[in-house]
Write a protein that binds this DNA or RNA. Structure first.
Length: 410
DNA sequence: TTCCTGTTAG
DNA sequence: CTAACAGGAA
């Protein structure tokens, strides 16, 4: 016998070969008798899976939970039953269907991805058939591509999303920071080792279900878990310590006014945001950046020219300047103190406080600002609160502004 | 390669 | 207060 090429002193995995091999069958048995089999996008019971359905649902499920996704998924499928329907739809129609789900870049990538897919189908006669092929589609990364190939094509694909990472860091006792690339590589290697070659789609469904219903972040149900017998975290009684993430920095707070500019017909001025950044491509009220603070320290204010330009869109700069030039006074709907701003929106790295302010314009004034904005080819619309809600599809924070009781615009 | 960013629900 | 994943900037 020749020596094994792998040095056994630096073994890759904490578990024995037998334990590694037993992992998938146990998970699959559990899923078959106790997992969810009625989610509207599941394709494991059909011999002819529809990759469009899996792609659409997987993109929606990125950063969003099953119960939230279901009604959106069903509305998408009835309006856009095929990838061609989605590719041919107008962006505003797609945005309206996505409104409220958040992370609007996903919707833009979905729309772009539909066009890319239609092109590939017209050339090759079918959807991409490989993980690499799917990774080339906008909005599809490594894990989503693996999921689509495994579940949407019944081919071989590995997933390593947040659910899988939680399950396997606990099971294998992996305590490295999962935001570090070394740990990420380790997790992908383990996910690949555990995924059965011939049944990866079934396994992917089962792992996602495990993570969502049993191996949950809080109160994991280890009693019902098929792999608790050799789970390192369970043996240590430290389930909640996994997955480990280094603690993050305190978030600064940012304060802005949300301007409700009303014309004589009681219509509100709406501006379409640039494609990148917050609420990209969606319709939003003009915002006025006021200041950003961390604790008591003022980080930046609208007084600084560079901040005025970086914190406001071009359209917002025009609106702000026009209001100042005309010495108009927008009125806060409450006491106007920054700290009591009624809308709070928390992002990854800052808290955003929005203060609704109302300003009623004369006909001449609303025409003037409309002209000014149109000169720079900014998309704008004058619509009542209800019309805007129905036809534009607004992000949640804008709905909250409209629902501010003192505003009386609904 | 690594770092930074987005939104909502639980 | 925390989690989720892809893309673009640094």
């Amino acid at each position: 016998m020749t020596q094994p090429t792998v040095n056994l002193n630096t073994k890759l995995f904490n578990h024995t070969e037998t334990e590694l091999n037993d992992f998938a069958p146990r998970i699959l048995n559990w899923f078959d008798s106790h997992g969810r089999h009625d989610l509207p996008w599941q394709q494991h019971k059909t011999d002819t899976p529809n990759p469009y359905i899996v792609w659409l649902s997987e993109v929606m499920l990125q950063q969003t939970q099953v119960t939230t996704v279901i009604p959106y998924f069903q509305r998408f499928m009835s309006s856009f039953p095929s990838v061609q329907d989605l590719a041919n739809a107008d962006w505003d129609m797609v945005a309206e269907h996505w409104a409220g789900l958040g992370y609007y870049a996903r919707a833009r990538n979905l729309h772009k991805g539909a066009k890319q897919l239609v092109e590939i189908i017209n050339e090759t006669g079918d959807f991409p058939q490989t993980v690499e092929g799917w990774e080339a589609i906008s909005g599809v990364g490594q894990s989503t591509a693996g999921a689509i190939v495994a579940m949407g094509l019944h081919g071989y694909g590995v997933i390593c999303d947040g659910n899988v990472k939680r399950v396997i860091t606990r099971w294998a006792g992996i305590d490295g920071d999962i935001t570090k690339s070394a740990t990420n590589k380790q997790l992908w290697a383990l996910a690949e080792r555990l995924t059965p070659i011939e049944d990866s789609g079934h396994f992917a469904q089962a792992m996602m279900d495990m993570g969502a219903t049993l191996c949950t972040r809080r109160n994991p149900n280890c009693e019902a878990c098929p792999i608790s017998k050799d789970c390192v975290a369970h043996a240590q009684g430290r389930e909640m310590d996994y997955p480990f993430k280094a603690k993050k920095k305190p978030k600064p707070s940012k304060f802005s006014n949300a301007l409700v500019l009303l014309n004589s017909k009681n219509e509100i001025l709406w501006l379409q945001r640039p494609d990148s950044g917050i609420w990209g491509g969606l319709w939003v009220l003009p915002l006025q950046f006021e200041k950003k603070i961390l604790g008591k320290k003022v980080l930046s204010t609208s007084e600084e020219d560079s901040v005025f330009e970086s914190e406001n869109t071009l359209a917002e700069q025009i609106v702000d300047k026009w209001i100042n030039d005309n010495e108009l006074q927008a009125l806060s709907v409450n006491d106007g103190l920054l700290e009591s701003a009624p809308i709070k929106h928390t992002l990854t790295h800052f808290h955003w406080y929005l203060q609704p302010q109302k300003l009623v314009l004369e006909d001449q004034q609303s025409q003037q600002i409309t002209e000014l904005l149109k000169q720079t080819e900014i998309s704008l619309a004058w619509l009542s609160a209800n019309e805007a809600k129905q036809t534009l599809g607004l992000p949640k924070a804008m709905l909250k502004v409209l629902e501010t009781p003192e505003l009386c615009v609904i």
